[in-house]
Every structure is written in C-alpha cells, then in structure tokens.
C-alpha cells in the first residue's frame, strides 16, 4: 500500500486511440486523471470521457466483474478494467489498449464476430436425443453431477483468455479457450446427450489440438474457469476416443 505521504495527486493514462476513418493505425494519447486509491482503470476512462474527450470509445456495463464487457489490455495484460485498481499500477503511466488478437473497431472497442461465431459453433446448449415433455417434469441432477461442470459454467465471455492465448494470436481458426471450456461444460452435463455432435469440431486440429497448454488463459480468467484444464480433460477424452476407434465396438472416426 502507498502511504498518504507518497500518494500522488494524479496519474497518467496512455490510451490507444483509433478512428477507422482517419487513422492508418492506432496512436496513443496521454491523459492526466485524478488519482484515487479506490479508482479502477474504468473509473479513469469514465473520467476522461466525461472531462477531456467525449469521443473516447469503449465498452462497459456492470462495473462489478459480472458482465464481461470492459476487458482491455492494461500494461500489456488482459484484465477487466472494472477490477484493475489504479493503485496497483503506481506510479504510472498506465497503458490501456484494446484486447489483443481482435480487430479494432474504434479506440478500445474490438470486433466480437469471430468469438461469437466460435461460441455458437460448439453448440453451447443442452442437446437431447428426444425432448421429454414438460408434463414429465424437469431433468434431475445430483449435486455431484452439477459439480462435474459447474466450474466451466462460470464463464462471462469477457474474452480475456483469447487475448492471453499465444496460439490464438497466430491461429485464426483456433476455437479458443472460452468456447472449448464451454463445450466441456455441456459435454460434462449429465442432462446433455450432444457430445457426439460437438466432438468433430472440438476434437479437430482447430479445436483442442491447437492448444499447447501454455496456461495463460487460466492465469487471466477472472472467474477461475480454468479453460486450460478443461482442454486438457478434453484431450484425454479425445485420446481415449482415438484409440477405441480402432476397436470393433469403438466409436468410428469421422
């Protein structure tokens, strides 16, 4: 902790600015904002937008680490800016950039299209071979069966894991940590019967096998989903599937 005597009055924020109609590439603009020990980076951005430049563009919503909108690179590390305290970046300056690995739309806003497409590609919903009619009641699940996937269901789609993943930075086709963890969440759900529909994509070279278990995704995950662990579990399942595909009664390879 910084003592009152050394507490600065202000802190410098270097913000990446990009306007697609004027700029060839992003440029940095420096703003001086008041320093408060209880301010987060998002507070500083709101102060800049309010006091200095109303055209500064970024996403945010809940301000409490639930919505997953305000992910940005702060000093090169992907974080939720609503949970990144200025006091942890003293004395500054603090460099704020859009999430790495995604096309920038404007200033700190990135294009979500690729991520959203990958999320839906893993079919993140409960698939039943036959839907039971409502009159027969709900699909029951024990607390233990819930524990099998609960951790993987905490994802808030903030995309920090994609920005942290060294593989995603050069493999555009890689399905990526959050979507693969979500696939694992449904595959491990006792109510779901859709594993076979998800395997062709997640077991492909663009799925889990692009992952080299660097583990950065799990380091930056604000919800402790551990996507790297989810992918390792899926690799184990896929390997068992690969070997049993050679057995007479094994699942055939696609």
């Amino acid at each position: 902790m910084t003592t009152a005597a050394t507490m600065p009055e202000t802190i410098m924020i270097d913000v990446a600015r990009y306007h697609p109609e004027h700029d060839e590439e992003p440029q940095y603009e420096r703003f001086e904002v008041p320093y408060r020990s209880d301010w987060v980076v998002l507070d500083a951005l709101n102060h800049i937008k309010d006091q200095d430049d109303g055209s500064l563009t970024y996403r945010w919503s809940c301000r409490m680490g639930v919505c997953g909108s305000c992910g940005m690179m702060v000093n090169g590390v992907p974080v939720l800016t609503c949970a990144a305290f200025l006091r942890d970046y003293l004395p500054g300056p603090v460099r704020v950039e859009p999430l790495a690995g995604f096309p920038v739309e404007r200033d700190l806003v990135v294009d979500l299209k690729d991520f959203i497409g990958k999320l839906s590609a893993v079919k993140p919903w409960i698939i039943r071979e036959e839907e039971t009619p409502l009159s027969e009641g709900e699909y029951k699940q024990s607390p233990g069966q819930l524990a099998d996937f609960k951790q993987f269901s905490m994802c808030i789609n903030c995309m920090l894991c994609y920005s942290a993943c060294p593989v995603y930075q050069h493999e555009e086709e890689f399905v990526g940590p959050a979507a693969l963890a979500l696939a694992q969440r449904y595959n491990a759900d006792s109510r779901d019967e859709g594993n076979a529909e998800r395997y062709p994509l997640i077991w492909s070279d663009d799925g889990i096998w692009d992952c080299t278990f660097v583990g950065e995704c799990s380091e930056v995950c604000p919800k402790h989903v551990d996507p790297a662990g989810a992918i390792q579990s899926a690799k184990l399942e896929s390997t068992v599937g690969w070997y049993t595909s050679f057995l007479p009664l094994g699942r055939k390879r696609d």
């Binding site: 233990g144 524990a147 099998d148 390792q232 184990l236």
Partner: peptide, 15 residues
Amino acid sequence: QAVPRAIRIRRGEEF
C-alpha cells in the same frame, strides 16, 4: 502439478 488439471476425480459431491 499439471496432472490434476487434466484428471479430475470426483468422489460424491467433492473432487
């Protein structure tokens, strides 16, 4: 240290 990341063994409600 990496082993428990891939192998999750559940006993009852707890891992």
